[in-house]
């Protein structure tokens, strides 16, 4: 990893790319949601322009009122609140995904910007790098 960082520093000093992490999976049934979150946190070390978007079942990652004691896994929903401290402040949800699941922004553990599908499409189209889970 340190080599990669050196390369980025030497080759790309001052070059900031637009990175987007697309989250489309519910939190506990698969490992994707947790992995996506960890990669986003690690990416913060590279000082890039990071956005995180939540579409389809990905919106379930942000639900508040979680209690994971019964299934004996870590409650990583709390970790989404740490993103701000990692300077990842651009969080978006797709309205259609929220509506299809009967969710409103009041159900979510962090503040997000809700976009309609056309706005989300445009935001995706303007990225340099998109990593999807």
């Amino acid at each position: 990893m340190s080599d990669m960082m050196d390369d980025m520093e030497e080759g790309g000093e001052g070059v900031v790319k637009k990175f987007m992490f697309v989250n489309r999976k519910a939190p506990h049934g698969t490992i994707y949601a947790l992995e996506g979150l960890e990669v986003a946190l690690i990416s913060a070390a590279f000082d890039q322009d990071v956005s995180m978007v939540f579409v389809d079942d990905g919106v379930y990652e942000l639900i508040k009122g979680v209690n994971t004691k019964g299934i004996e896994v870590k409650d990583f929903s709390k970790t989404y609140r740490a993103l701000e401290g990692y300077d990842i402040e651009k969080l978006y949800v797709e309205k259609a995904s929220m509506d299809a699941r009967g969710l409103t922004q009041d159900d979510l553990i962090v503040d997000v910007i809700a976009l309609d599908s056309a706005e989300m499409a445009n935001l995706m189209a303007e990225q340099d790098v998109v990593i999807s889970y």
């Binding site: 519910a26 939190p27 506990h28 379930y60 639900i63 508040k64 009122g65 979680v66 209690n67 994971t68 004691k69 019964g70 299934i71 896994v73 409650d75 929903s77 009967g102 159900d107």
Partner: peptide, 13 residues
């Protein structure tokens, strides 16, 4: 399954 509902914040719904 209740524990799975709890873990997903869905018990009240």
């Amino acid at each position: 399954l209740g524990p799975d509902l709890d873990a997903r914040g869905m018990s009240a719904r």
